[in-house]
Amino acid sequence: MASRRRVLLKVIILGDSGVGKTSLMNQYVNRKFSNQYKATIGADFLTKEVQFEDRIFTLQIWDTAGQERFQSLGVAFYRGADCCVLVYDVNVAKSFDNLNNWREEFLIQASPPDPENFPFVVLGNKIDVDGGNSRVVSEKKAKAWCASKGNIPYFETSAKEGFNVEAAFECIAKNALKNEPEEELYLPDAIDMAGGQQQRSAGCEC
């Protein structure tokens, strides 16, 4: 079956504003980090090719595009996700407390066929800040929460230092691949619009 489904994996990154969602994906895909924080403008999604057992997959990582700021992500954002990454800032207690809301919001909006086994991955970001002295959420506490939600894989990361980012996304990709898609949606294939007189260009618009 030549379904696009088998090669394209949709990953969405959720979490409070300012926890480093855009930085994490940027570090993973472009190996870049910017110290200047501004609420996300211009971030859409990034893609990266990953290889598993001789097969190449395209990981499509979707940013919230700032629509998470007032909890205004529409249902379309969540649809068809193969893996949901939940990010919090280890230095901000509220961002950890809100993980539960983000997880529930995802399960309601995306309504995956098997919610119990839908792949989530949790990232505790910004472990580099102040040499770890300003940290308020312990690794133990985070791991306990992950365990209580069906053993969600947990990673501590620093998007700034690039620490553990590669490993986290490797796990994300692996889990996305395990997700069983709803076959019916991909039979027959969706319309191929790129072939329809669309102006093609290789560069990005920046």
Binding site: S34, A43, D44, L46, T47, S201, A202, G203, C204
Partner: peptide, 17 residues
């Protein structure tokens, strides 16, 4: 009019601009 890059070639995003 903008150049829309193809989705298998990097998503048309301008992160970190």
């Amino acid at each position: 009019s903008i150049n829309v890059s193809n989705d298998d070639e990097g998503g048309g995003s301008e992160l970190d601009s």
